[in-house]
């Protein structure tokens, strides 16, 4: 965006830094859920960094790996993974749900002939893909 308030003298309403908690004296659920949605990315990043660290430990040998696996059984790690899982699920839910909005907007994503598929089917398709991916990974992880 190229909004130059210096030259155009546009009035910008001062916004409190805690706008997502309290906007003009009120709690706005939409703002709060928006920030929670953005916050999911922090947990995704933390999980990925932890995963990379575990890969690194594997290169350090069996003992380093086993010691870290043991510490993953501790309470704080379990709580972290539980919270990270909830945020990851919220990310999946909101991100895949976006396909509904894309389908509803403009000419839509998926068409059959000249007809635009109703958004609900596109959502079912993307949530279905999530289910399939989840099952395939779980199957490979348990059986490979």
């Amino acid at each position: 965006m190229m909004l130059d308030s210096e030259t155009t003298k546009t009035y910008t309403r001062p916004i409190s830094k805690a706008w997502w908690l309290r906007d003009r004296g009120y709690f706005n659920r939409r703002y709060f859920m928006f920030l929670l949605r953005e916050l999911t990315s922090v947990f995704v990043a933390l999980y990925v960094v932890l995963f990379i660290y575990e890969l690194f430990l594997l290169t350090k040998g069996q003992e380093a790996h086993a010691a870290f696996q043991e510490s993953l059984r501790s309470g704080p790690f379990i709580v972290f993974f539980l919270i990270a899982l909830l945020f990851a699920l919220y990310h999946s839910w909101t991100w895949l749900g976006l396909t509904t909005k894309m389908q509803a907007a403009g000419r839509g994503l998926v068409k059959i002939g000249t007809k635009t598929l109703p958004p609900i089917f596109v959502a079912l398709g993307s949530y279905g893909a999530w289910l399939v991916a989840t099952c395939v990974i779980a199957y490979l992880f348990l059986t490979l």
Binding site: V44, Y47, F51, Q69, L72, R73, F77, I78, F80, F81, L82, A84, L85, A88, L89, H91, S92, W95, L96, A129, W130, A133, T134, I137, A138, F141
Partner: peptide, 19 residues
């Protein structure tokens, strides 16, 4: 990719095995 793959990985490696 995060939406499709991350939750099951967190569940399997972060919760299912340690628990």
């Amino acid at each position: 990719i995060a939406a499709l793959l991350i939750p099951i990985h967190i569940f399997l490696c972060g919760l299912a095995v340690p628990l």
